[in-house]
Design a protein around this nucleic acid. Sequence first.
DNA 1: CTGTTTATTGAACTAAAGTACAATTTACAC
DNA 2: GTGTAAATTGTACTTTAGTTCAATAAACAG
Lengths: 208, 208
Amino acid sequence: MINPVPTVYLVDDALSVRKGLERLIKSVGLNITTFASGEEFLRHKQYKQPSCLILDVCLPGLSGMELHTKLIQENICLPIIFITGYGNISMSVKAMKNGAVDFLQKPFNDQEIISAINKAIDKSIRIQQEADEHTKIQSMLDILTPREYEMLRWVITGMLNKQIAFELNITERTVKAHRSKIMKKMQVVSIVELVRITQKCGITPAEK
Amino acid sequence: MINPVPTVYLVDDALSVRKGLERLIKSVGLNITTFASGEEFLRHKQYKQPSCLILDVCLPGLSGMELHTKLIQENICLPIIFITGYGNISMSVKAMKNGAVDFLQKPFNDQEIISAINKAIDKSIRIQQEADEHTKIQSMLDILTPREYEMLRWVITGMLNKQIAFELNITERTVKAHRSKIMKKMQVVSIVELVRITQKCGITPAEK
DNA sequence: CTGTTTATTGAACTAAAGTACAATTTACAC
DNA sequence: GTGTAAATTGTACTTTAGTTCAATAAACAG
């Protein structure tokens, strides 16, 4: 599907908050799924994209902050907006340090939360695009043999084939053979493209 | 000088705070320069590197937040730690969104502020290193003629010389001539290095 | 007007990269 | 053992990049 409608996940134990935000968020044309606890949200497991999470700090059981930490540990990149009735500064600072998009105190006005949601959704889209690209590159890297991967790291040093051959004590012909396979497997036609995609995946050039 | 002692700048209108932090910061071997107001700090103008700024939110005249905004506008990248006696959540969130390293409430213990300072100084060092590199690359870019700069953007597309020549309706020979000058002026010997340094300065490949 | 810089191009050349035929050896799975 | 994948190498070739001699034309400064 092209440009799916963004989804807002909301975790808050107060029914009134869930109902109020549900109405507001639907009114601006977004999907919303609500949960009464962190545990309930974690059971859900299916996160649509793009999406974001509005999270009450004070929850019975798993707290909002704990849930945030858990999502970070499990590498689930879901932009988070905290909302709270009884928050304090150190809590908000901690949340922001952990990468929260915003931290709002109840009661907040519609403008504030909508603005935060838009920012969070934008972030979600960017993260997703980057993840997609990363996945695509990784799938090509995965079909490289260990030797080819090593050779890739030599190729992106910018050294001449003969220099690489000397470093590895093999012939220039062999370097060329590997290089050719690497270019095919990585689906690029120029060394420039190869450098670009390796940069994106944090592949470092080999060192003597 | 190699590895100069980091400097902590402190802006707080309370003499007791200035004295207390001065003693603490000196005790861990760092330099400290104190100011009683934002205006006084701005008059100083000479920021040593690496350094960071501890800033009281509530100041007579220019507030801490306003000073932060001013520094951002003037592109002065000084990692900031806010301290405050009477802060609120929205203030702390705003500060963190603006890139503050930390936001501490008085009274804070020595451990907290020292930890924040260390983080800020680390950030300062990283920023400085990146800025140095950026400056060095920029000085080489500056000696490129407009045409050479344009040609550079074509070269880093990864296209063949003949293709670039066709795009610009010039001969392959001319592309080679420019390319050669570009490599000399940019002080690189391989296209790989050229791609790397242009990436660092956000130079985008040309488009048809 | 004159000198300089810049952009352009040419011819001939060297060097490097890449390709199209291969073959050999090793390791490993079934 | 046999087949397969991987790593290595060879020869000969084409293509591309880069260099070394240039020269020409336009723009611009003093």
